[in-house]
């Protein structure tokens, strides 16, 4: 399936099976999962349910045994490891639960980091000077005063600040897909809601999709669609049982 102009499908996962190397017996199966451009999808599931594995598959950090993972029409399951790395660099931004930043770099350094690996995103942002300006704009957009914290070591920032810097990094150069693995679990409720609103606002402007996993169903109202992992995963370890959304 090629990426035709006007296609609204951003991500399409089909009949994917995966097994971590060296862990016989454990397998993950995703019969089907999709995401449209600009759509915000929340995957809910308890820890250990294979959320991170699913994200690693979508991000192309690992490749499935079988099945298709189409991002923007490109089946990344068919790509080699370094092609997947390049693809991720150009089209995706990733935010982890915590420890997102290289601690010795400044906030601005960290935001600019993906541009080193993604020529198209770099071109989209522009010159060296424009890159710095864009980094500061994104930080400001996420409620961080770049002139106050831009030059500080990332390690000296609060967890909430670090997560916003990570989000800015995931969005610089307007990649089409943001992948977030429990990015708000270390934040208090107020900071969490503010974070999600600011990220959503910026994503909407660039028409980028968000694939986020969390164990926290309270986040649901802030997403376009909510999917329980239990509904899309077939866990090889056990017979699938229905899990109720709390």
């Amino acid at each position: 399936m090629a990426d035709r102009p006007g296609t609204t499908r951003l991500l399409e996962v089909e009949a994917v099976r995966y097994r971590w190397p060296g862990e016989a017996g454990f397998a993950l199966e995703v019969p089907r999962l999709s995401l449209d451009r600009g759509e915000r999808l929340l995957l809910i599931g308890p820890s250990g349910s294979g959320k991170s594995t699913l994200l690693a598959l979508v991000a192309g950090i690992v490749a499935p045994l079988e099945g298709q993972i189409r991002v923007l029409g490109e089946d990344i399951a068919r790509l080699g490891a370094s092609a997947r790395d390049r693809f991720r660099a150009e089209h995706m931004g990733v935010v982890f639960q915590m420890f997102n930043l290289l601690p010795y770099g400044s906030a601005v350094d960290n935001v600019l980091l993906p541009l080193s690996f993604a020529p198209k995103r770099r071109a989209r942002v522009g010159s060296h000077l424009a890159q710095e300006t864009e980094a500061r704009r994104l930080l400001a957009r996420l409620g961080l005063d770049a002139s106050a914290i831009g030059r500080r070591r990332a390690a000296d920032l609060s967890v909430g600040q670090q997560q916003r810097v990570a989000a800015a990094r995931a969005m610089i150069g307007r990649p089409e897909l943001m992948i977030a693995d429990e990015p708000t679990s270390a934040l208090d409720t107020e900071t969490r809601d503010q974070f999600l609103d600011l990220v959503s606002g910026e994503l909407a402007e660039s028409d980028a999709g968000l694939l986020m996993v969390s164990h926290d169903a309270a986040l649901a109202p802030r997403f376009d669609r909510v999917v329980r992992l239990a509904d899309i995963l077939r866990d090889g370890r056990s017979v699938p049982v229905p899990v109720a959304v709390p």
Binding site: A81, D85, A89, F117
Partner: peptide, 8 residues
Amino acid sequence: ILRSVGAR
């Protein structure tokens, strides 16, 4: 982190 931003 480097892997996540696309470093080979």
